[in-house]
């Protein structure tokens, strides 16, 4: 399982990258953390002619908060997401997601930009950024472009990135004291891709009423699936058992999962309902829980 003969070039700035991309065109493949790309190369499943290493481009690094928006550079490693104080404060969902991604050695290399660009339907981070209502900052020789995360994932392993675009950063709107988020998944073993997972974010006001719920499932479709009808079943309602049941029921129309090695579509639907209950029930008021 040796990688096929291939070229390698390193870009240390965006300008250098644009030059290399212009030179090699479609034969070039970007290399960030490489944790997915290099595994697929081992199987000779893809055949790029040259890898363009972007890991030393400073402009793609860094985590900062500006005007209440958390900006996470594309080269931010999963391990950094898990331990960065700004992420923990402004996007705790991502900090919670990091330990679910593979294993420590993978998290030390894999990057958020790489994960989003690869768009594996069972991956955690694409679902998280959709749940958080994030914006993907794409950059190309033509300049910057901002794509809402919801519109970024366009199909199985497909994104809205143009061939000459790369992800520069992810921007995440600030959280409110009423914001609640949670990520849970069912995986065969720790670190495996999930059979089904749910990244959820919503607001709960003082009377327990839900606003702007976003339930985003992964491992159950061709990409992260924003369950619009389940969200609608919650929006504006007091979060109680009945509301959760309504959201679960609405999933029937939100999800059209494929079968995979682990089981049939019915299993994924079933697990999505279970996850919905498990994600939301900790938010129930004490009186509800006691029932």
């Amino acid at each position: 399982m040796k990688w096929p003969a291939i070229g390698y070039a390193r870009a240390t700035s965006l300008d250098e990258l644009w030059r290399l991309q212009a030179e090699h065109g479609a034969a070039a493949q970007l290399l960030a953390g490489g944790q997915t790309l290099l595994a697929t190369l081992a199987f000779r499943l893809s055949d790029p002619k040259i890898l363009l290493d972007i890991t030393r481009i400073a402009a793609l690094r860094g985590i900062a908060v500006q005007d209440g928006v958390l900006r996470i550079g594309a080269l931010t490693r999963h391990a950094e997401l898990g331990r960065d104080p700004l992420v923990a404060q402004h996007a705790p969902l991502l900090a919670e997601a990091a330990p679910l991604i593979a294993h420590p050695a993978i998290r030390n290399r894999g990057t958020i930009g790489g994960s989003l660009a690869y768009a594996d339907p069972a991956a955690e981070l694409p679902a998280c950024v959709v749940a958080l209502g994030a914006t993907i900052v794409a950059v190309s020789p033509r300049g910057e472009r901002r794509v809402p995360a919801e519109a970024f994932f366009t199909g199985l392993l497909q994104t809205a990135l143009a061939p000459d675009e790369i992800i520069a950063a992810v921007e995440i709107p600030g959280t409110q004291p009423t914001t609640r988020s949670r990520i849970i998944e069912v995986a065969r073993r720790s670190g495996d891709y999930a059979m089904a997972g749910l990244a959820a974010r919503l607001s709960l006001n003082a009377e327990g009423r839900v606003t702007s719920p976003r339930l985003v499932f992964f491992g159950v479709g061709s990409g992260p699936v924003l369950a619009a009808r389940a969200g609608a079943a919650l929006d504006g309602w007091v979060l109680d058992s009945a509301a959760i049941a309504a959201a679960q029921a609405a999933l029937a129309e939100d999800l059209d999962p494929p079968a995979d090695m682990h089981g049939p579509p019915e299993m994924k639907r079933h697990l999505a309902r279970v996850l919905t209950f498990r994600a939301l029930s900790p938010l129930l008021r004490a009186s509800e829980v006691a029932e």
Partner: peptide, 23 residues
């Protein structure tokens, strides 16, 4: 050689990585 088994774990710049997934 596809990043799953961990037999190739080494340190790069102080942190452990899968050696088979690093160029």
């Amino acid at each position: 050689e596809h990043g799953v088994c961990g037999a190739c774990t080494v340190r790069v710049d102080g942190e452990i990585v899968r050696g088979c997934l690093v160029l």
